[in-house]
Design a protein around this nucleic acid. Structure first.
Lengths: 229, 229
DNA sequence: CACCAAGCGGAGCACGCGATCCGCTTCAAC
DNA sequence: GTTGAAGCGGATCGCGTGCTCCGCTTGGTG
């Protein structure tokens, strides 16, 4: 395909570093990314790239120069959202009450989903399958596991809960959030009610034996290679 | 468009009744419906009508003759699935234990979703919005409300739960079911775990005040006229 | 200023979709 | 058997999509 441009004499940079973007190129890249975040949040992952390019005020060619594939663009916006999720985890770690810290993380994630349809639609399938996100995902899961163990040690959360369960539960609440609640006239905060029910289900008082064991991290990563589509 | 063929003399049927389909036509209609149920269950509501026609062994023209629109076809298969949901409600009503009857309905619905992607993808948005489904939906909700009140009277379920909550909760569990669990290698019954957590959240022991009131039926039906897309 | 590659934009491509059209086939009433 | 309309099927259409190509513009360097 395209040959990598030969290192130009004089402008040698160590390793195979990327050359800095031209000023206008960098500006356009930002505008595309911002527009994509907007459009994906409003319309979900099925939004057309043409719409994104239009709102960014650039041509389609420019968009694809910066993000070779729609999927790349979606991933880039997803990383933005995941950053704010990471902030929420950081904040939760600073809370004293172990139960409240769990509530904070889970609520923050649901809030992201409530305002970002694209995040919801991507987060379940993508997060487990996309290699480029595995590392940061794993880091977040480790911190989340610590929060859960802290709450379990304090007897504030059911003993059979595992960190791997949380993404599934968040995805579930997110489904209600994005599809049923936020896009409709009836109380856009309705998802808080169902998150409340799920949280009640996580309390130790509620615990009854769960029928199926939680997936191990190994199972989840094995899953990414075996995916059919 | 097409003029309704004039009532033929001798074959008069009272009112504006439909004339019976020709034998082969009825057979083809069944085959299309069966193929659609299969394909939508496997691939979700985004499956192509061409694939359905192919699997039914008919041409595209035949398919659209019986179901003028893809949406009509989807609705027809949805009604099939809703029938089995109604059966589940009937069975639940016969159970003695009020809590178990709730568990049965909810589990049955989740089982449908676990094996039918199209049902999941349609049930949330469709069920509230589609006028042709409103009547049977309303009937089911009434019976479901009776089951819940029975369980509440027995002190087996939290007092602040309303029948209108159940579809939302089922949709939530269904999201995990269809998107994350059933299509992957890792334990296809994983959704039972999360349904278990939600059910624990419905027990009276777990109840803590929920932040948002449940939607009233009036709000839900008002929703159908105000929908943007 | 002069220069040229880095960057731009939007016409255009290939594809897959839902839906339609119309010449041919088949059922069933007589 | 004859006949007419009900039914069939698949080539075809229009459209929207993700993506590419290529002539033109622009930024930054000597």
């Amino acid at each position: 395909m395209s040959t990598v441009p030969a290192n130009r004499p004089g402008a040698e940079d160590g390793a195979d570093a990327v050359r800095p973007l031209r000023a206008d190129a960098r500006r356009n890249r930002e505008r595309v990314l911002a527009a994509a975040a907007e459009v994906f949040a409003e319309q979900g992952a099925d939004a057309s790239v043409a719409e994104i390019a239009r709102r960014a005020g650039v041509g389609a060619g420019t968009l694809f120069r910066h993000f070779p594939t729609k999927h790349d663009l979606l991933l880039a916006t997803l990383e933005l959202a995941l950053q704010s999720l990471e902030d929420a985890i950081g904040h939760a770690e600073a809370l004293e009450d172990p139960w409240e810290s769990i509530v904070h993380v889970v609520t923050a994630c649901a809030e992201i989903q409530a305002r970002d349809r694209g995040f919801l639609e991507s987060v379940g399938p993508e997060l487990f399958l996309e290699p480029r996100l595995q590392r940061s995902h794993h880091a977040k899961m480790t911190r989340l596991a610590a929060l859960i163990e802290r709450a379990q040690a304090a007897g504030r959360i059911r003993e059979d809960l595992r960190a791997e369960d949380i993404p599934f539960l968040l995805y579930a609440v997110g489904g209600v959030t994005g599809q049923c609640c936020s896009a409709t006239a009836v109380s856009p905060d309705l998802w808080r009610r169902y998150l409340g029910i799920v949280l009640d289900g996580l309390r130790p008082a509620a615990a009854s034996p769960l029928p199926v064991p939680a997936p191990t991290p190994a199972e989840l990563t094995a899953l990414k290679s075996a995916h059919p589509a």
